[in-house]
């Protein structure tokens, strides 16, 4: 997908401010085209509006063509590095199950791992060079993942492309920002025609992990 180069947005002065004592690191991992970048931008908008420092690191380029992708969002009083090292992510949101396993070492002790219950077969598996991992559900359960049928929920609300916003809904339950701030960010960021569907997707994502 071509880079969206027109995503800069101003920081709202009207939002409720939030104080964080320690920098929080959120990692969004998935497969190119799943909408991790939009999800990261929604989080960044909410955090910036809440008066926090924010850094969003995205990897473009070769990773676009169906490869593994990751976006790191760090929020806090003053954020230094934009990189998440192993053991540093407070929350990992995986848009695909194998990518969740691929990112497991980034979750800090006591951190959260939200996983979209979807498997996308990598091309090397399709062509017989590699095999799909076994016991994926078991492995995810063992590392304390919260599984969400985000794709199913998105289809239910009639907007299959809103899987990412369902996951943002789930993520929002683990962060100290108010629901209306998230909703405001969705209104500002998604195409006007899709606002209602995305707000529904967001709400259903919150319910799914309530």
């Amino acid at each position: 997908m071509p880079h969206d180069t027109t995503t800069n947005y101003g920081v709202s002065q009207n939002a409720n401010k939030v104080v964080l004592d320690e920098t929080k690191t959120i990692m969004l991992v998935g497969v190119g085209g799943q909408g991790t970048i939009l999800a990261g931008q929604l989080l960044a908008m909410v955090a910036a509006d809440a008066g926090l420092d924010v850094k969003v690191s995205e990897i473009h380029g070769m990773s676009q063509r169906g490869g593994s992708v990751s976006t790191v969002v760090r929020v806090g009083k003053k954020v230094d590095s934009m990189i998440a090292d192993p053991g540093c992510a407070d929350i990992v949101v995986a848009f695909e199950a194998i990518e969740a396993l691929r990112a497991q070492q980034y979750v800090r002790e006591g951190g959260r791992l939200f996983v979209n219950d979807e498997r996308i077969t990598p091309v090397p598996v399709n062509i017989g060079v590699c095999q799909m991992p076994e016991r994926v559900d078991e492995r995810l359960a063992k590392i304390g993942a919260t599984i969400i049928d985000a794709a199913g929920i998105a289809r239910e609300v009639g907007s299959p492309r809103s899987t990412n916003v369902v996951l943002v809904g789930a993520l929002s339950t683990a962060l100290p920002f108010e629901v209306q701030e998230w909703e405001e960010a969705i209104r500002r960021r998604v195409p006007p025609k899709t606002v209602e569907a995305n707000l529904e997707a967001f709400a259903r994502g919150r319910e799914a992990v309530a």
């Binding site: 497991q104 070492q105 090397p124």
Partner: peptide, 20 residues
């Protein structure tokens, strides 16, 4: 000091970029 963390998962199929 570095934060403790889980080991990286082994045996996962790579997901390189591919022709669309």
């Amino acid at each position: 000091a570095a934060p403790s963390h889980m080991e990286a998962a082994q045996g996962l199929p790579p997901r390189p970029p591919a022709f669309c």
